[in-house]
Protein backbone atom coordinates (compact mmCIF):
# COMPACT_ATOMS: atom_id res chain seq x y z
CA UNK A 1 0.00 0.00 0.00
CA UNK A 2 1.31 3.31 -0.91
CA UNK A 3 -0.50 6.59 -0.12
CA UNK A 4 -4.30 6.98 0.22
CA UNK A 5 -6.51 4.50 -1.55
CA UNK A 6 -3.66 2.92 -3.45
CA UNK A 7 -2.36 -0.62 -3.37
CA UNK A 8 0.61 -2.05 -5.22
CA UNK A 9 0.11 -5.10 -7.39
CA UNK A 10 2.65 -7.90 -7.72
CA UNK A 11 3.86 -6.45 -10.90
CA UNK A 12 4.57 -3.26 -9.04
CA UNK A 13 1.67 -1.25 -10.46
CA UNK A 14 -0.67 0.68 -8.09
CA UNK A 15 -4.51 0.83 -8.06
CA UNK A 16 -7.27 2.55 -6.00
CA UNK A 17 -9.34 0.72 -3.30
CA UNK A 18 -12.16 3.39 -2.93
CA UNK A 19 -15.03 1.39 -4.60
CA UNK A 20 -14.87 -1.77 -2.50
CA UNK A 21 -14.84 0.26 0.61
CA UNK A 22 -17.96 2.16 -0.34
CA UNK A 23 -19.78 -1.05 -1.21
CA UNK A 24 -18.87 -2.50 2.15
CA UNK A 25 -20.11 0.58 3.89
CA UNK A 26 -23.51 0.41 2.14
CA UNK A 27 -23.89 -3.20 3.05
CA UNK A 28 -23.30 -2.45 6.65
CA UNK A 29 -25.80 0.39 6.65
CA UNK A 30 -28.47 -1.71 4.99
CA UNK A 31 -27.91 -4.47 7.42
CA UNK A 32 -28.51 -2.06 10.24
CA UNK A 33 -31.77 -0.66 8.66
CA UNK A 34 -33.38 -4.09 7.78
CA UNK A 35 -32.09 -6.17 10.44
CA UNK A 36 -34.28 -9.20 11.26
CA UNK A 37 -36.41 -7.39 13.69
CA UNK A 38 -40.08 -8.48 13.81
CA UNK A 39 -42.85 -6.75 15.68
CA UNK A 40 -46.03 -8.70 16.47
CA UNK A 41 -49.43 -7.05 17.05
CA UNK A 42 -52.33 -9.30 18.02
CA UNK A 43 -55.35 -9.50 15.65
CA UNK A 44 -58.35 -11.82 15.42
CA UNK A 45 -60.36 -12.66 12.35
CA UNK A 46 -63.63 -14.26 13.36
CA UNK A 47 -66.06 -15.74 10.87
CA UNK A 48 -69.59 -15.62 12.09
CA UNK A 49 -71.79 -17.08 9.30
CA UNK A 50 -75.15 -15.43 8.87
CA UNK A 51 -78.23 -16.52 7.05
CA UNK A 52 -78.23 -15.21 3.51
CA UNK A 53 -79.82 -11.78 3.68
CA UNK A 54 -80.65 -11.96 -0.03
CA UNK A 55 -81.87 -15.16 -1.54
CA UNK A 56 -83.72 -16.74 -4.41
CA UNK A 57 -87.29 -17.88 -4.31
CA UNK A 58 -89.47 -19.43 -6.96
CA UNK A 59 -91.64 -17.04 -8.90
CA UNK A 60 -95.35 -17.35 -9.50
CA UNK A 61 -94.83 -19.22 -12.77
CA UNK A 62 -92.17 -21.63 -11.57
CA UNK A 63 -93.34 -25.15 -12.21
CA UNK A 64 -96.15 -24.00 -14.49
CA UNK A 65 -96.81 -25.61 -17.83
CA UNK A 66 -94.19 -24.78 -20.40
CA UNK A 67 -94.50 -25.26 -24.14
CA UNK A 68 -94.62 -28.79 -25.44
CA UNK A 69 -94.50 -32.11 -23.76
CA UNK A 70 -94.11 -35.77 -24.56
CA UNK A 71 -94.79 -39.32 -23.56
CA UNK A 72 -97.69 -41.66 -23.15
CA UNK A 73 -99.43 -40.74 -21.03
CA UNK A 74 -98.58 -37.23 -21.99
CA UNK A 75 -96.45 -35.17 -19.65
CA UNK A 76 -96.23 -31.48 -20.23
CA UNK A 77 -92.94 -29.67 -20.07
CA UNK A 78 -92.79 -27.32 -17.12
CA UNK A 79 -90.95 -24.13 -16.31
CA UNK A 80 -88.23 -25.71 -14.24
CA UNK A 81 -86.88 -23.51 -11.46
CA UNK A 82 -84.55 -25.15 -8.96
CA UNK A 83 -83.38 -23.25 -5.92
CA UNK A 84 -80.33 -24.42 -4.00
CA UNK A 85 -80.82 -25.78 -0.49
CA UNK A 86 -79.83 -22.45 1.05
CA UNK A 87 -81.55 -20.41 -1.64
CA UNK A 88 -78.23 -19.10 -2.85
CA UNK A 89 -78.14 -20.78 -6.23
CA UNK A 90 -80.62 -20.99 -9.03
CA UNK A 91 -81.13 -23.20 -12.07
CA UNK A 92 -83.79 -22.44 -14.66
CA UNK A 93 -84.71 -24.62 -17.62
CA UNK A 94 -87.32 -23.43 -20.10
CA UNK A 95 -88.66 -24.59 -23.47
CA UNK A 96 -89.06 -21.68 -25.84
CA UNK A 97 -90.07 -21.86 -29.49
CA UNK A 98 -89.84 -19.60 -32.52
CA UNK A 99 -90.76 -15.93 -32.27
CA UNK A 100 -90.97 -14.29 -28.85
CA UNK A 101 -91.41 -16.57 -25.87
CA UNK A 102 -91.89 -14.77 -22.60
CA UNK A 103 -91.64 -16.21 -19.11
CA UNK A 104 -92.97 -13.88 -16.49
CA UNK A 105 -91.90 -14.05 -12.85
CA UNK A 106 -90.11 -17.39 -12.90
CA UNK A 107 -87.99 -16.53 -9.87
CA UNK A 108 -87.59 -13.74 -7.37
CA UNK A 109 -84.67 -12.22 -5.49
CA UNK A 110 -85.76 -11.49 -1.97
CA UNK A 111 -84.12 -9.21 0.59
CA UNK A 112 -84.75 -10.35 4.12
CA UNK A 113 -82.23 -8.01 5.70
CA UNK A 114 -82.94 -4.72 7.37
CA UNK A 115 -80.91 -2.72 4.92
CA UNK A 116 -80.94 -2.23 1.19
CA UNK A 117 -78.79 -4.18 -1.18
CA UNK A 118 -77.56 -3.44 -4.61
CA UNK A 119 -78.16 -6.47 -6.83
CA UNK A 120 -76.19 -7.19 -9.98
CA UNK A 121 -76.11 -10.00 -12.48
CA UNK A 122 -72.97 -11.11 -14.21
CA UNK A 123 -73.11 -13.32 -17.27
CA UNK A 124 -70.00 -15.44 -17.19
CA UNK A 125 -70.93 -17.93 -19.87
CA UNK A 126 -73.38 -16.54 -22.39
CA UNK A 127 -75.84 -18.47 -24.49
CA UNK A 128 -74.04 -19.41 -27.65
CA UNK A 129 -74.84 -21.00 -30.98
CA UNK A 130 -78.32 -19.54 -31.11
CA UNK A 131 -79.39 -18.50 -34.63
CA UNK A 132 -78.39 -15.05 -35.87
CA UNK A 133 -80.55 -12.23 -34.53
CA UNK A 134 -81.77 -14.36 -31.67
CA UNK A 135 -82.32 -12.53 -28.41
CA UNK A 136 -82.30 -13.75 -24.85
CA UNK A 137 -82.74 -11.42 -21.91
CA UNK A 138 -83.29 -11.70 -18.23
CA UNK A 139 -85.56 -8.86 -17.19
CA UNK A 140 -85.77 -7.64 -13.63
CA UNK A 141 -89.03 -6.07 -12.50
CA UNK A 142 -90.15 -4.57 -9.26
CA UNK A 143 -92.67 -6.69 -7.46
CA UNK A 144 -96.12 -6.79 -9.00
CA UNK A 145 -95.30 -4.57 -11.96
CA UNK A 146 -97.71 -5.09 -14.86
CA UNK A 147 -95.92 -6.36 -17.96
CA UNK A 148 -96.63 -5.09 -21.42
CA UNK A 149 -94.93 -6.03 -24.66
CA UNK A 150 -95.05 -3.88 -27.77
CA UNK A 151 -93.24 -3.14 -31.04
CA UNK A 152 -94.17 -5.08 -34.14
CA UNK A 153 -93.08 -7.65 -35.29
CA UNK A 154 -90.88 -8.54 -32.33
CA UNK A 155 -92.57 -7.26 -29.21
CA UNK A 156 -90.38 -6.28 -26.30
CA UNK A 157 -91.20 -5.47 -22.72
CA UNK A 158 -90.91 -2.11 -21.05
CA UNK A 159 -90.93 -0.74 -17.53
CA UNK A 160 -88.27 -3.12 -16.28
CA UNK A 161 -85.55 -2.24 -13.78
CA UNK A 162 -82.78 -4.04 -15.61
CA UNK A 163 -82.18 -5.94 -18.81
CA UNK A 164 -79.48 -8.60 -18.75
CA UNK A 165 -78.34 -9.83 -22.12
CA UNK A 166 -77.81 -13.57 -21.83
CA UNK A 167 -76.03 -13.78 -25.16
CA UNK A 168 -72.96 -11.79 -24.06
CA UNK A 169 -70.79 -11.51 -20.99
CA UNK A 170 -71.07 -8.53 -18.72
CA UNK A 171 -72.32 -7.24 -15.43
CA UNK A 172 -75.60 -5.40 -15.09
CA UNK A 173 -76.78 -3.88 -11.84
CA UNK A 174 -80.35 -3.21 -10.89
CA UNK A 175 -81.06 0.42 -10.24
CA UNK A 176 -78.82 3.40 -9.78
CA UNK A 177 -80.43 5.25 -6.92
CA UNK A 178 -83.01 2.87 -5.55
CA UNK A 179 -82.07 -0.59 -4.44
CA UNK A 180 -83.63 -3.71 -3.04
CA UNK A 181 -85.02 -2.74 0.32
CA UNK A 182 -86.02 -4.79 3.29
CA UNK A 183 -88.81 -7.26 2.67
CA UNK A 184 -88.84 -6.39 -1.01
CA UNK A 185 -88.14 -8.57 -3.98
CA UNK A 186 -87.33 -8.40 -7.63
CA UNK A 187 -89.20 -10.51 -10.14
CA UNK A 188 -87.19 -12.22 -12.84
CA UNK A 189 -88.60 -12.64 -16.35
CA UNK A 190 -87.09 -14.43 -19.32
CA UNK A 191 -87.45 -13.19 -22.85
CA UNK A 192 -86.40 -15.41 -25.73
CA UNK A 193 -86.63 -14.55 -29.41
CA UNK A 194 -85.75 -17.21 -31.97
CA UNK A 195 -86.31 -16.14 -35.58
CA UNK A 196 -88.10 -18.44 -37.96
CA UNK A 197 -86.21 -20.48 -40.49
CA UNK A 198 -83.42 -21.87 -38.31
CA UNK A 199 -82.84 -25.30 -36.89
CA UNK A 200 -82.35 -24.95 -33.17
CA UNK A 201 -82.37 -28.63 -32.39
CA UNK A 202 -85.99 -28.78 -31.40
CA UNK A 203 -86.28 -32.42 -32.29
CA UNK A 204 -82.91 -33.47 -30.97
CA UNK A 205 -83.36 -31.83 -27.58
CA UNK A 206 -80.48 -29.38 -27.89
CA UNK A 207 -79.96 -27.25 -24.79
CA UNK A 208 -78.36 -23.82 -24.62
CA UNK A 209 -77.06 -22.72 -21.22
CA UNK A 210 -75.91 -19.42 -19.78
CA UNK A 211 -74.09 -19.27 -16.45
CA UNK A 212 -74.57 -16.21 -14.32
CA UNK A 213 -73.72 -14.85 -10.94
CA UNK A 214 -76.11 -12.92 -8.82
CA UNK A 215 -74.04 -10.40 -6.92
CA UNK A 216 -75.32 -8.31 -4.08
CA UNK A 217 -73.71 -5.82 -1.83
CA UNK A 218 -74.74 -3.25 0.70
CA UNK A 219 -72.16 -0.99 -0.90
CA UNK A 220 -74.28 0.73 -3.49
CA UNK A 221 -71.69 2.94 -5.08
CA UNK A 222 -69.13 0.35 -6.08
CA UNK A 223 -68.99 -1.89 -9.07
CA UNK A 224 -68.57 -5.50 -8.03
CA UNK A 225 -65.13 -6.92 -8.74
Amino acid sequence: MSGNNLIVNNDGRKRRITTPLIALLIAVVISIAFASVFVYYPMAVTLQPASPPVYFETGSNAGAYDLGGSGTPYTSNTISVSIGSNATSLTIIVHPTYQVTYYKNVSIVYNNDGKSYKVCFRVNTPLSDLPPNSKAYLYIYSQGYARSLSDYPTPTPSGYLAQIDLTSTGTTCVGTTTFLGYNQFYEMDLYIYIPEGYNVGMTSGTTYTANLLLIYTPQTSETPP
Partner: peptide, 21 residues
Amino acid sequence: VYGSVFDYYPSSISLSPVSPP
Protein backbone atom coordinates in the same frame (compact mmCIF):
# COMPACT_ATOMS: atom_id res chain seq x y z
CA VAL B 1 -70.12 1.19 7.18
CA TYR B 2 -68.78 1.08 3.65
CA GLY B 3 -67.17 -2.28 3.56
CA SER B 4 -66.83 -3.64 0.03
CA VAL B 5 -68.74 -6.84 0.72
CA PHE B 6 -69.96 -8.66 -2.35
CA ASP B 7 -71.71 -11.95 -2.29
CA TYR B 8 -71.92 -14.15 -5.39
CA TYR B 9 -74.65 -16.67 -6.05
CA PRO B 10 -74.29 -19.01 -9.02
CA SER B 11 -77.19 -19.47 -11.37
CA SER B 12 -77.81 -20.92 -14.79
CA ILE B 13 -80.48 -20.50 -17.37
CA SER B 14 -80.97 -23.21 -19.96
CA LEU B 15 -83.05 -23.09 -23.09
CA SER B 16 -84.35 -26.29 -24.57
CA PRO B 17 -86.28 -25.17 -27.66
CA VAL B 18 -89.37 -27.10 -28.70
CA SER B 19 -91.40 -27.20 -31.90
CA PRO B 20 -94.19 -24.62 -31.95
CA PRO B 21 -97.18 -26.12 -30.18
